[in-house]
Each structure stands twice: as C-alpha cells, then as structure tokens.
C-alpha cells in the first residue's frame, strides 16, 4: 500500500506548530464562552496554557510500579500527533500515502487505547471504571467514524485521507456522511454529554484520577490535541471540497485554504462550548444505546452510498 509515500517538510512544520499551540488556546476560548453563558467572568483566554505550564513543572506521583502508567500519556500524545500528521494543512500534507486513512483511524483510536491502558494500569477503582467507560465509548463511537470515513473513501475512490476531500463528489450519501462525521467527532472528543469517562462528579475524573503533575499535563494535552485533530478533520472535509479550485493552485491558494480551515475551527469551538454548557452528562448505557442507534443508521447510509446515491 505504501508505494507512493510523500513527505512535506513544510506540512510537518505547520502541523506541529498548529497542534502544539492551538489546543490550549481553543480550550481557553471554550472556557470563556461557557463562563459567559453561566454569567461568570471566566478565566483568561490563556488559562489553559498557564495550567499546563504549571502541571509540566510539577513532578508526578506514581501510585503503581506498572510502567504502562508512565508510558500511556506519552503514547496518547504521540498518537494524537501522528494523526495530526496525516491531515492536510492548506495545500501541504505532512505525510501522505495510499491507505493512510486506515492508519489515521487506528492512530486516533490509539489515543483512547493509551488512555485506557493508563487507566487500567492502576488499582484505583475510579480509574478502572473510567477506563471501562472510555472503552465502551470507543467501541461504540469508532464504528460510526469508521463507516463515515468509509463512505467518503468509497465515494472519492481513494484511501488517502488528504486526497478524499479533493475528490469526494456531492451526493445524498455524502451529505449524510457529513452528519455522521460531525456526530462521531463530537462524541469521540468527549465533550458534554459524552464526558462519561472523566465524569468528575461521578467518578472523580475517572481515567485521570491517578494522574498528577507532568503526566497529567501530557495526558490533558493529548486529549486536547485529539479534539483538535477531530475538529481539523471536520473542517478539512468541509473546506477543501468547496475550495477545491484553489487548494492546489500554489502558495497563495494553500494559505487561503489553511486560513479558512483555521477560521472554521475557531468558529466551531465556541459553538461546541455553548452546546456543552447547556447539556447534562449521559449515563454510559444511555450513550452506548444512542451510539448503537446512530451506528445502525450509518449502515443504512453506507447501503445508500453503495447503491450509488
């Protein structure tokens, strides 16, 4: 499959810079928006940077000798970055090869898997319950994401993630696939009402409960990065098909597309924050039931796509 692998140095630089800098900033915006909805002033926009800076400066307590406990956060972060490298930034794609959509799918799941490994490496029951819940969420959401991406790949006729938006045709099934993608990206990101694995008031942070200091910082960073990756995927799939004409026409076109992608992300995040602020958390069985229904729906969409609509 990896016959034609191409690496763009510029793409890597843009990708690293964005994924390294943007997630805490977006979180800062979300916190501010939520605060304003709740009639509060809220923390400064850069608060999440301060939080992470502080966490990175603190040593971590280790409740277990299990080395996976220490490895898991870094694994999660590395997975999130790897996923980010497969996405197009304007005209530049850091890493591109045929079949990278499969790799993207797996690497994205690895973020959750790493978190689950970390959660199960300790003997804390909260952490274990959180791990269980995360696993249930992954098992019920990933298929939806998989089917959605599958429809796109099928319609575009390519297995390269960055090539799909350039080739995907407008049809009934792709419109439905967009809806599925939006739902899956939202649920996978663990925003309220899907923040079941962390559920602060029920299981005291769940998967995060045993982490502290630097490791907690890395883990939170990985979660934020994963949210950005999913959102970027969404924004790419929405932007590039529309700007297909200029996306590959040179540096200026590339920058325009990149800017539009960025603006879309910046607009979407406050909307998500507003949605978070006005919802309560699902119980895990309710979330899984909902996901299952959506998954069955996605199979119908897949059938529609197969028929050729």
């Amino acid at each position: 499959m990896m016959k034609t692998m191409s690496i763009s140095v510029l793409g890597i630089i843009v990708g690293v810079v964005l994924v390294a800098i943007l997630p805490p900033f977006l979180d800062g915006i979300a916190r501010k928006v939520k605060a304003r909805i709740q009639y509060r002033v809220g923390p400064p926009i850069l608060q999440t940077y301060y939080d992470l800076q502080k966490l990175f400066g603190l040593p971590s307590l280790r409740p277990t000798e299990n080395k996976w406990f220490r490895v898991a956060p870094y694994l999660a972060l590395a997975s999130a970055f790897s996923a980010a490298f497969l996405l197009p930034y304007g005209k530049w794609v850091p890493v591109k090869f045929s079949g990278d959509i499969v790799v993207f799918f797996y690497v994205l799941a690895m973020v959750s898997v790493a978190i689950i490994i970390g959660a199960f490496s300790t003997q804390n029951a909260h952490s274990n319950i959180g791990g269980h819940r995360e696993m249930m969420m992954v098992l019920s959401v990933e298929p939806i994401l998989g089917v959605a991406l599958g429809i796109f790949a099928f319609k575009a006729g390519t297995l390269s993630l960055s090539a799909i938006p350039l080739k995907v045709p407008a049809s009934f099934s792709t419109v439905l696939a967009y809806l599925l993608l939006i739902y899956a990206a939202y649920a996978e990101s663990g925003f309220v009402p899907f923040d079941i694995a962390e559920a602060e008031t029920e299981i005291a942070g769940g998967v995060l409960v045993e982490y502290s200091g630097r490791l907690l910082g890395v883990l939170e960073y990985a979660i934020l990065a994963k949210r950005l990756v999913l959102l970027w995927l969404l924004s790419t799939f929405l932007t590039i098909p529309i700007l297909r004409g200029i996306a590959l026409t040179g540096v200026v076109g590339g920058i325009v597309v990149l800017a539009v992608q960025l603006i879309l992300v910046l607009v979407a995040y406050p909307l998500i924050a507003a949605l978070e602020a006005t919802n309560a958390r699902y119980r895990i069985d309710q979330a899984v039931a909902l996901n299952t229904r959506i998954f069955l729906l996605s199979l119908v969409v897949l059938a529609v796509a197969a028929v050729g609509w």
Partner: peptide, 13 residues
C-alpha cells in the same frame, strides 16, 4: 428552551 443570551457576568474580582 433556555435562552442562551450571553449574560452580564456576576462574578467580581
């Protein structure tokens, strides 16, 4: 449904 107007903040420094 609840109105989502951004309210005047009530928290003070």
């Amino acid at each position: 449904r609840p109105d989502l107007r951004v309210g005047v903040p009530v928290t003070v420094k």
